[in-house]
């Protein structure tokens, strides 16, 4: 078991009859924002539901904040959950609904009311808080879903596909809220998504599930810095420069008017400098460029490209 993990999956397995949803996976979720990445049916939602105590694992254990998730009811007061699907009533106002759910999480009524107002302010719905939820837009409903997960000030929040159904601007706002929730308030977040770009831009660590099995786990930067690339633009002598770089063993691909140079370590910068001098190419721009997770998985395991940028 890894030290200091908020959530620990230990040989966690779940079967639905003959279908294996999770096949004995072990991983830890630590402080910060952790993304669970995987295609539909990979086992992301099943894992989250086991952590929340909504499902009983077929084998293994889920330890949440030091307690067995399938046995402890009290630990749920320290967890927040934003489901992927609809979970909001239509006839009540956001303020009333959040106050009620804060009470269900154990807060006294007066405190619950204050918390509801504060949380709705945090997600940008303070002015709209007395309107019936049924009249909200999709983006506003997603914010209410996030707010209800935060209203009781949980230690960790589990977000299941929080950007599902949002347009690009709504999606960006939601990702900003998720980052802000961790950065400003120190609430750890488990973020499930099939969109790698969302995970890459939001999370510190990722866990990749496929077909109920753990494929990869680690820091997002581990995945991207391992394959560091350099992007350069030159004003002239581009073709000579490409030949020179290739002769020096550097992989070169043309992209958006410039060149992507792929190396394994920092020595690539020395090689680029020497190649520029050797062919006399005037350098206009040079910048390090991390490869996106989408590219990484597209190359290393094509079946893992499950969404990419929308």
């Amino acid at each position: 078991m890894s030290q200091g993990a908020l959530i620990q999956a230990v040989e966690l397995g779940k079967r639905y009859g003959p279908i294996i949803a999770l096949n004995g996976v072990s991983f830890g979720i630590h402080d910060g924002i952790t993304g669970i990445l995987g295609e539909n049916g990979a086992g992301k939602s099943t894992a989250i539901k086991i952590f929340l105590g909504l499902l009983q694992p077929t084998s293994g254990r889920a330890i949440v904040l030091g307690e067995d998730a399938s046995e402890s009811i009290t630990v749920r007061a320290k967890l927040g959950y934003m489901p992927e699907h609809d979970c909001l009533p239509t006839r009540v106002s956001a303020a009333e609904f959040l106050t009620h759910l804060a009470e269900v999480s154990g807060l006294p009524p007066e405190r619950a009311r204050t918390r509801a107002a504060d949380t709705l302010r945090h997600v940008g719905l303070f002015e709209e808080r007395y309107r019936a939820i049924g009249g909200y837009s999709t983006g506003m409903k997603q914010r209410v879903k996030l707010a209800q997960a935060l209203v009781h000030d949980p230690r960790i929040v589990l977000l299941d596909e929080p950007t599902a159904g949002l347009d690009p601007s709504g999606r960006e706002e939601m990702l900003d809220l998720v980052r802000k929730t961790h950065r400003d308030f120190g609430i750890s977040i488990l973020f499930s998504s099939h969109l790698m770009s969302d995970v890459e831009r939001t999370c510190d660590r990722i866990i990749v599930l496929q077909g109920g099995q753990l494929v990869q786990a680690g820091e997002v930067t581990d995945f991207t810095t391992e394959t560091e690339t350099v992007f350069i633009e030159v004003d002239d002598r581009s073709e000579e420069l490409v030949s020179e770089l290739v002769s020096r063993g550097i992989s070169v691909t043309a992209e958006a008017g410039g060149l992507n140079l792929e190396g394994t370590d920092d020595s690539i910068y020395d090689e680029v400098r020497d190649a520029l001098v050797a062919v006399g190419a005037p350098l206009r721009r040079m910048a390090p460029r991390r490869r996106a997770l989408t590219e990484l998985f597209a190359r290393d395991g094509e079946e893992l490209v499950v969404g990419g940028d929308e």
Binding site: T74, A77, Y81, C87, L88, V104
Partner: peptide
Amino acid sequence: GVINLYLVRP
């Protein structure tokens, strides 16, 4: 689906 929000609480 509100029932899911109840059942993830104590």
